Amino acid sequence: MRERARADAASWTEDPYTEALALGRGPLRLRAADGWSLALDVERWCAVADAADMTVLDRCQGTVLDIGCGPGRLVAALGEYGHPSLGIDINAAAVARTVRRGGRALRRSVFDPPPPPGTWDTALLVDGNIGIGGDPALLLRRVAGLVRPGGLLLVEVAGEDVDERLRVWMENARGATGTPFPWARLGAPALRRVARVSGWSPVDSWSKDARDFAALRRG
């Protein structure tokens, strides 16, 4: 798992991602060697929680761990909701921005030694973070060790029925690129398949403002 953490950290802790966070805007894309690309919504990540985010926060229960919290909009909003929460992210600029917004955050990967395991009531994998490490089954098993039995995992999924394992890199408008790293994309059907073999039971799904989500409960 530590090897997986180092592979992901290679690009998420360097320019052009750190530069985009500092500016609060893109353009920033993930790219793959076969021409595949995906725009990253840096502006939304750096803004306040929006209506689609609120549908996730409304479902949170108890203590909340936001995995890959980025610049902290969800952690900040959870504080306003009264949920004890913690964000974890491997990017120092993201953690610093979360703290400036009044949230609690630690610089670490989900594959590093975790915050108190088995104690969190809810975990979040939003903004495509089901892709962390490029192996969703491994990631879900890891998160199962962090959440208490019966706890929730709220996941943002791709809008289409997709199940992709990719090697990608970051690229900005100037063509500057980061180090390649493993990533994944799952739609709702693929997430349900992976969840059932990774210690989770699908319990809900919903859409808001062209974004799609699913709730899983730890078995």
Rank of each mutant, 00 (worst) to 15 (best):
L125E: 11
P84S: 08
R104I: 07
G82D: 00
L106D: 11
L65R: 01
R97P: 00
G118N: 05
L86P: 05
S85M: 12
D41T: 03
D58Q: 12
A96E: 04
G103V: 14
L86H: 02
L57I: 15
R108F: 11
R104W: 10
A49M: 05
R59Q: 04
P116C: 04
R107Q: 12
V99T: 13
L65T: 13
Q61Y: 00
D89V: 09
V95T: 08
S85K: 15
A52V: 09
E80F: 14
F111S: 02
S37C: 06
Q61T: 09
G68V: 08
G62F: 03
G79T: 09
L86G: 04
A51P: 15
L57Y: 08
P114S: 03
V56W: 02
E43M: 03
A105D: 01
E43Q: 09
S109C: 04
D112I: 03
A52E: 11
G62V: 13
G118S: 06
A51K: 04
V42L: 05
E43S: 14
L125M: 12
L125I: 08
D127V: 06
V64I: 05
D58R: 11
W120Q: 04
L38F: 15
L65Q: 07
V42F: 02
I90T: 11
Q61R: 10
P71E: 00
R44G: 14
G102F: 01
A105T: 15
V56R: 03
D112S: 09
L86K: 07
V75I: 12
P115V: 03
G87F: 04
V126N: 15
P84D: 14
G62W: 02
G87L: 04
S85N: 12
R73V: 00
T119F: 02
A76H: 08
G102I: 05
R100C: 11
I88K: 10
N129Q: 14
F111Y: 11
L57G: 06
T122C: 14
R100T: 13
W45C: 13
M54T: 01
I67C: 01
A77C: 10
T119W: 00
V42Y: 00
D127F: 15
